Simulated scan of single mutants.
Amino acid sequence: MTLEKLSESLCHGGSQQVWRHQSSATGTPMTFAVFRPEHRTTEKLPVLWWLSGLTCTHENAMIKCEYKAACAEHGIVFICPDTSPRGEDVPDDEAYDFGKGAGFYVNATQEPWARNFQMRTYIEDELPQVVAGAFDVDMDRQGISGHSMGGHGALTVSLRNPGRFRSTSAFAPIVSPLNCPWGDKALTGYLGDNRDTWRQYDSVALIEDGARLPEVLIDQGRADEWLEPQLKTHLFADACRRAGMEPTIRMQEGYDHSYFFVSTFIADHVAWHAERLKA
């Protein structure tokens, strides 16, 4: 497998890079961003995965998220994958919330999406193997986070893989695709009408079905226009309470859904992850 470096820029004493490779999961080239703090050549650093939201590529978080100074301070590699396969031959939809830029981190089973939209396999299996083979990372010290659709991805990936991630957080996550219009559209399109098959991609359903996390940190803006119709943070809080989990859910007064909100609190999240990713 060949990795192609597309760009590299020094930043906060580290290196912000963009890479591309041919994915066997999606059947397309896939691009991801990596921030690598300055470190000894013999040192392996913990890794924090960031899953972005609807309409995003690897670039949105890289430019807007403001994680680099905190990752340099704490010695954490920060990785931003793309949100879907790309290419002229990849099927798409005219709407912003389905198709390219809206992979929802699922393995599609319905045509024409099944051929390329295998984002669960890409995120959970293929990309970690690529990263482990190419960079100085300690795969025993992984954390995961994300925003909106990516918050949904972070929660569900971690819940499905107990013990893989030492830390899990999210910003304004879609907590229950089974119970919101975004999820209903995406999961119907990618997975079909059998809602039982959707449960593996719904954090509330996963908790109801027995999955557990020792800790979770969630930040959610109270002025987020999507809070009530789509995100429904209270459903996650209720499921955790019934399961005996105690998540840290911080409702931030006045903040919306944007990367202005994310960038305000990302250093808090990086520090929180760093405490849990220490050797």
Rank of each mutant, 00 (worst) to 15 (best):
M1P: 07
E4G: 09
S7P: 12
E8V: 05
H12R: 10
G14P: 03
Q16R: 08
Q17V: 11
R20G: 09
H21W: 15
S24A: 15
S24I: 14
A25M: 06
T31W: 10
F32S: 00
V34E: 01
V34M: 00
R36H: 10
H39V: 03
R40H: 05
T41Y: 07
T42P: 05
P46G: 13
V47L: 14
L48V: 13
W49S: 10
W49L: 11
L51I: 11
S52V: 11
L54P: 09
T55W: 12
T57K: 03
H58F: 04
E59P: 10
A61N: 00
M62E: 11
M62V: 10
C65W: 07
E66N: 14
Y67W: 09
A69I: 07
A70M: 11
A70I: 10
E73Q: 05
H74P: 05
H74E: 10
D82H: 05
G87V: 07
A95S: 15
G99D: 00
G103K: 00
F104M: 07
F104Y: 02
F104Q: 04
A108I: 15
T109L: 15
P112A: 06
A114M: 08
N116P: 03
M119K: 05
Q129S: 15
V131K: 07
A132P: 13
A134F: 12
V137H: 09
M139D: 14
M139A: 12
D140C: 11
R141A: 10
I144S: 04
H147P: 04
G150V: 09
G150Y: 08
A154K: 04
L155P: 02
T156D: 02
V157L: 15
S158Q: 07
L159D: 01
N161R: 08
G163S: 05
R164V: 03
S167L: 08
A170M: 11
I174Y: 04
I174S: 06
V175N: 01
C180I: 01
C180M: 05
G183M: 09
K185D: 10
N194R: 08
T197S: 09
R199S: 04
R199L: 03
R199N: 00
Q200Y: 01
Y201W: 02
V204Y: 01
A205N: 02
L206G: 00
E208K: 00
G210V: 01
R212E: 13
L217W: 09
D219A: 02
G221D: 01
R222W: 02
D224M: 12
E225W: 13
P229Q: 05
K232H: 13
L235T: 07
L235H: 08
F236H: 02
F236M: 03
A237M: 11
A239R: 03
C240L: 03
C240D: 02
R241A: 13
A243R: 01
A243C: 01
G244C: 12
M245I: 05
P247F: 05
P247W: 07
I249A: 00
R250E: 04
M251I: 11
G254Q: 13
G254H: 12
Y259P: 13
F260C: 14
F260H: 12
F261A: 03
V262M: 02
V262E: 03
S263M: 13
T264D: 08
D268V: 03
A271S: 05
W272F: 10
H273N: 12
K278E: 13
